[in-house]
Amino acid sequence: MSIKIMELKTILQKLRNKINKIDELILELLFKRRKIAIKIAKKKIINKFPIKDKNREQELLKKLINFGKKLKLSKKYIQEIFNIIIHDSIEIQKKIKIEKKNNNDNNQLEIACIGPKGSYSYIAAIKYMKKYKKNYFIKKYNNFEDIFNSIKKNKFNYAIIPIENNYSGFIPEVYKLLIKKNIKIIGDFYLPIQHCVLTKPNIIFKDIKKIYSHNQAFKQCSNFIKKFHYLKIKYTNSTSEAMKIISTSNKNNIAAIGDKNNSKFYKLNVILENISNQINNKTRFLILNNYDINKINSQKKNITLILKTKQILLFYIIQILYTNKIEIIKLKLNSYHKNQIKEIIYLEIEIKKEKKIKKILKILEEKDIIIKNLGSYSRLNISK
């Protein structure tokens, strides 16, 4: 090796050492910046100030861009770096806000669900909160879109959302929102569902001409509906909305499909019981939040991923999981042809070793697979 090459290598190493020291200094400064952001968050929470301040962000970027010009740094370079730093600061502050809410036992926890009082989601929310929390308030929404939008705005602590039924399968709207929105699953549980025909007092079944309920309830009772095909079907946003319509109507020829235990909320009579297609009918509910803050201990945990692929890679993904002995709990595939994405895969797998999961994710990322992690969580046991 010539003396010139040796000298060049020595010079390069010295320069690289300088860069390493600068990089370490940058990380130390970012750490200090985070600590200050945490202090700011605590002050904002106490004084009930909003976490995000667009004017402050724009003003900061403008000053940094002007300062960067003096250092001969491009506008795009500064924007890209500080957009990441500012986003990190906002996310840290949001997380602190939620954790402060959840850790304060004196605060009344808010939990969101679909439907008026007496819906299956409402009952699921009560059962969850009674088992795991002390003080709660249920916030009722009319549709899933509003709940998901409110999650991002931190309008409540938790949301209880039905995701699938063991007979009718996934709820399409919820499935699409899980793909579209950035949320975290912090737990899930099953709730037995006992569909019944409900009416006002002193009404008999042969008088019924029209029946109200949610789309999912009709699917789960499709055999019953076919048997009495003359009944007119009316769809509602929830089973509890159907019960409310019956209880407030002057008509005596209408009924609702709903749960026996929930009929008491609307003073309705059960005239036919257990009309579900499946005897062991049950619905799976997800517990959602902005962050993975699950603190319930469990030997088993699941992780839910949304995988977006630019090639047809389903078989390859299954093969990778099988080779690494990763158990697939749930898999749903959607063909997709937009923005070069060909497949969207909803995947639930069981976690046994965190290192192995990290290894799998790295392999998938190397295949140019876009991965959205919806969170790792425990399966909860909430009895009827």
Rank of each mutant, 00 (worst) to 15 (best):
K310N: 12
F31N: 10
E354N: 09
L61G: 08
Y132A: 01
I111L: 06
N324E: 15
I245G: 00
K310Q: 11
D259N: 15
N297M: 10
I78H: 03
L191M: 12
K14F: 01
E173K: 15
A124L: 11
E348D: 12
N269G: 07
I96G: 07
P192N: 09
Y136P: 08
I328A: 07
I254Q: 11
Y266V: 05
F315T: 10
Q311K: 14
K359C: 02
R33M: 13
N47A: 02
E366F: 14
K355G: 02
S238I: 04
D368G: 02
I92D: 14
F285N: 08
S213N: 05
K244D: 05
K332P: 00
K21W: 08
K95I: 08
Y322L: 05
S121N: 09
D368E: 15
K133L: 03
A112Q: 13
L321K: 12
I84M: 08
N289V: 06
E164L: 03
K4R: 04
K200G: 10
K75T: 02
I329E: 06
A217R: 02
I306T: 01
P172A: 06
P172R: 11
S150D: 15
K70C: 07
L347Y: 09
K95M: 12
Q194W: 09
K308C: 00
N154F: 12
I254K: 05
K176D: 04
K352D: 13
K100C: 03
L61A: 05
L272T: 05
S276E: 11
V174C: 03
I81Q: 10
K234Q: 13
Y132T: 07
I98G: 01
R34S: 06
K100E: 14
L60E: 09
F228H: 09
I46S: 08
N143V: 08
E343Y: 01
F49D: 01
K153E: 14
I45M: 07
L288R: 11
R379P: 00
N302C: 09
K181Y: 15
I40A: 00
L380D: 03
N250V: 01
Y235M: 08
N17T: 03
N142E: 06
F315L: 11
K131G: 02
I183K: 01
I370V: 11
I257W: 03
I287R: 04
K9E: 07
N202D: 07
E173M: 14
N281I: 04
N281H: 13
N47R: 03
K295F: 07
E348L: 02
Y235D: 01
N149R: 10
